[in-house]
Simulated scan of single mutants.
Amino acid sequence: MAKNDALGEYHSKRDLKRSGEPGGSRRGRKAARPRFVIQRHDASSLHFDFRLEIGDVLASWSIPKGPSLDPGDKRLAIRTEDHPLDYADFEGSIPEGEYGAGTVIVWDAGTFEHLGDGSAEDALDRGSLSFRLEGEKLHGAFTLVRTRGSRQEQWLLIKKDDEGADRRRKPAKTQPESVLTGRTNEDLA
């Protein structure tokens, strides 16, 4: 199978036979509504990998503190390489010496709806993407906004003040388990 050009950076960073990560096969049908997944990744530091199905890939950001339900929080989200669609179900332990070594669980998953004019791809290119999540742990509208003047592609993830907002609940700290298996990163370690 030919590698998707959009996944060139993904493939160049990994030895998939050693890491056990998906290589990019679609594994079945494309979802009727685009998916999102948030993976809790305990690598060199614990962080959350936020992924949105845009086109034929999972557009990806690393969120060091995890998503917040408080509209007053602006969470740093560093854009990373696109991932294959079949990465949405990946849980496992990436061995030492491999890129991203550490444990990965599916912390939250569901569907999302792009909000606003044009396509999600166009909004991403413009640097401001608004969307509504329907997940197991997260619900409601969020915006990703690219910051200016940074050397890395840095964004901010901001929760909109809607029915899914909650200034007191801290799911990134209080709900460490996988929505697929109920396991934690510590269970995989």
Rank of each mutant, 00 (worst) to 15 (best):
Asp49Val: 12
Arg51Glu: 05
Glu53His: 11
Ile54Ser: 03
Ile54Glu: 01
Gly55Cys: 06
Asp56Trp: 03
Asp56Leu: 03
Asp56Phe: 06
Asp56Asn: 15
Asp56Met: 05
Val57Gly: 01
Leu58Glu: 09
Leu58Trp: 06
Ala59Phe: 04
Trp61Thr: 11
Trp61Ser: 13
Trp61Phe: 14
Pro67Gln: 07
Leu69Lys: 08
Asp70Ala: 08
Pro71Arg: 05
Pro71Asp: 08
Lys74Asp: 06
Arg75Asn: 10
Arg75Lys: 15
Ala77Trp: 12
Ile78Ser: 10
Ile78Tyr: 00
Arg79Cys: 13
Thr80Gln: 08
Thr80Val: 15
Thr80Arg: 10
Glu81Leu: 13
Glu81Arg: 07
Asp82Thr: 02
Asp82Pro: 02
His83Glu: 01
His83Leu: 07
Pro84Gly: 08
Pro84Cys: 11
Leu85Met: 13
Asp89Leu: 11
Asp89Gln: 11
Phe90Ser: 00
Glu91Ser: 02
Gly92Phe: 08
Gly92Ala: 04
Pro95Met: 04
Pro95His: 10
Glu96Trp: 06
Glu96Val: 15
Gly100Leu: 08
Ala101Asn: 10
Ile105Ala: 01
Val106Cys: 09
Trp107Glu: 00
Trp107Gln: 00
Gly110Asp: 09
Thr111Trp: 03
His114Tyr: 15
Leu115Trp: 02
Asp117Cys: 04
Asp117Trp: 13
Gly118Gln: 12
Glu121Gly: 10
Glu121Asp: 11
Glu121Trp: 03
Ala123Cys: 13
Ala123Leu: 13
Ala123Asn: 05
Leu124His: 08
Asp125Trp: 02
Arg126Tyr: 06
Arg126Phe: 05
Ser128Phe: 04
Leu129Gly: 12
Ser130Glu: 15
Leu133Pro: 01
Leu133Glu: 01
Glu136Gln: 14
Leu138Met: 14
Leu138Ile: 13
Leu138Cys: 02
His139Cys: 05
Gly140Lys: 08
Gly140Arg: 04
Ala141Val: 15
Phe142Trp: 15
Thr143Ala: 10
Thr143Lys: 05
Thr143Pro: 04
Val145Thr: 13
Arg146Ser: 13
Arg146Gln: 09
